[in-house]
């Protein structure tokens, strides 16, 4: 994030003041954005801050809480496992052919590695929740929250 801000700002300054556009900015910013997302994904999963549809699961919670939780973890495992399996040949393709970004000619595979790593980590988190290694998700309800939730990082950690 800091790098994105720095880079884009430098690029504007370079273009405006020095008159030389940085060709690499757009390529790198795109890559940094993916890196940031894939770094954040396991963290968000660990802290259970996902956007979810809770109407049905809340209704089922009192009677089938355990089952619903297992089903949810299985959906997560299936999704991330599937993406992980598909991401390996995808990465291999880029690695074997030394694919580069179009403009800046940056090697892609070091950046692309973030995807399977992140997806794999997230899978592990789901697996740990399912097996009870990590405490299961407890969704915050408004009443237990401090008034200004986004300011207080303490109230939303369940991991």
């Amino acid at each position: 994030m800091v790098a994105i801000v720095g880079l884009v700002t430098t690029s504007v300054v370079m273009r405006r003041i020095a008159g030389t556009p940085l060709h690499i900015t757009e390529d790198i910013v795109g890559l940094l954005l993916t890196a940031m997302l894939f770094l954040g994904l396991p963290l968000v999963t660990l802290r259970a801050q996902h956007v979810r549809v809770s109407i049905v699961s809340n209704a089922l919670e009192p009677r089938f809480g355990r089952l619903v939780h297992i089903a949810a973890m299985l959906v997560g495992l299936l999704f991330f496992g599937w993406i992980f399996v598909k991401a390996l040949p995808w990465l291999e393709f880029a690695w074997k052919r030394n694919l580069k970004t179009e403009t800046a000619r940056l090697l892609l595979y070091p950046w692309m590695t973030a995807l399977p790593v992140s997806v794999g980590l997230t899978w592990v988190i789901f697996a740990s929740r399912l097996t009870g290694l990590i405490e299961r998700e407890r969704y915050a309800t408004p009443d237990e929250e401090a008034t200004i939730a986004p300011l207080s990082d303490t109230s939303d950690t369940d991991g």
Binding site: T45, H50, V51, R52, V75, G76, F79, Y139
Partner: peptide
């Protein structure tokens, strides 16, 4: 998949897959 209360992204993505 979405009604299990899993992260919405996983439900949408799994459906797509």
């Amino acid at each position: 998949s979405a009604s299990t209360g899993v992260a919405l992204g996983a439900a949408l993505g799994l459906t797509g897959l």
